[in-house]
Design a protein around this nucleic acid. Structure first.
Lengths: 134, 134
DNA sequence: GTTATTGCAAACAATTTGCACCCAC
DNA sequence: GTGGGTGCAAATTGTTTGCAATAAC
């Protein structure tokens, strides 16, 4: 039995490139559709390899309030502000976590791979809709 | 048609208290079980009211890599470090976001309710298991 | 009465798994 | 041929929805 290889295979490469070139985040299903032309693969394979990419620290994922997972390459260090009411999402200009440094000992013996930071609130539209209904 | 009330109802109160007293985070299902004695309610009701509590800013949720959502009262400003391999989770001692201040304009017209910050990595056990297998 | 809230069971959707197959070595 | 990686379809899981019944006001 061999251990986990240090390299990533061609399917994983394809997924990663797809994410990198798309300029945004995609769900597993979107990736599956997106790859139909260039490098078709089964949905199960998409998910299996996305997990590997996460475990290797190449890909990060965040969850929408809907529960859907969105994947992005880790080097896109972008975080979001999401409306808890309508689910609308807007990217933050920059990552505030990079400005600080978190004491290394916080992480004990973990090998840190990436982080996710999400802000939640009520967007203007939803706030207006709410107050106008009272 | 009335607008969203400013107060929370008794079911929501029960959920919130359950979360506050339990000292930790719970999934929807766990909350449902936990409330069986004191204030039994259907699973659907649990989820419906958890959403309301989130929208009012009383409750925050984060998602495990498994996709399961864990709920906690927002005043417990605690974040986590999770192993992308085995899913093991450990709380951080303090929230580094509180130490900085994120420029208010980042949030545009959103009313900010809460944030989630999660770190991901490989825990010692998983790292050892991996390398020992090579 | 009218409106909001609930429980139940059915529906849903994203993701995971079982398994036979295939390919590279 | 042995082992990893894959596709497909079935299974699983957490969560949501439809709707009739109930409670609140």
């Amino acid at each position: 039995m061999r251990g986990a290889p240090l390299t990533i295979n061609s399917r994983q490469q394809a997924l990663l490139e797809s994410l990198r070139s798309s300029g945004g985040e995609m769900s597993g299903q979107q990736l599956h559709r997106h790859l139909e032309k260039q490098s078709p693969m089964g949905l199960a394979t998409v998910y299996r390899n996305l997990r590997v990419l996460q475990q290797r620290g190449f890909v990060r994922c965040r969850h929408l309030p809907s529960g859907e997972a969105l994947y992005a390459p880790v080097e896109r260090d972008q975080h979001h502000l999401t409306c808890v009411d309508c689910g609308k999402t807007q990217p933050l200009e920059h990552c505030p976590i990079h400005a600080i440094d978190v004491p290394q000992k916080s992480f004990g013996d973990f090998d840190l791979l990436f982080h996710t930071l999400e802000f939640f609130g009520i967007c203007t539209d939803c706030r207006n809709r709410q107050t106008s209904l009272i």
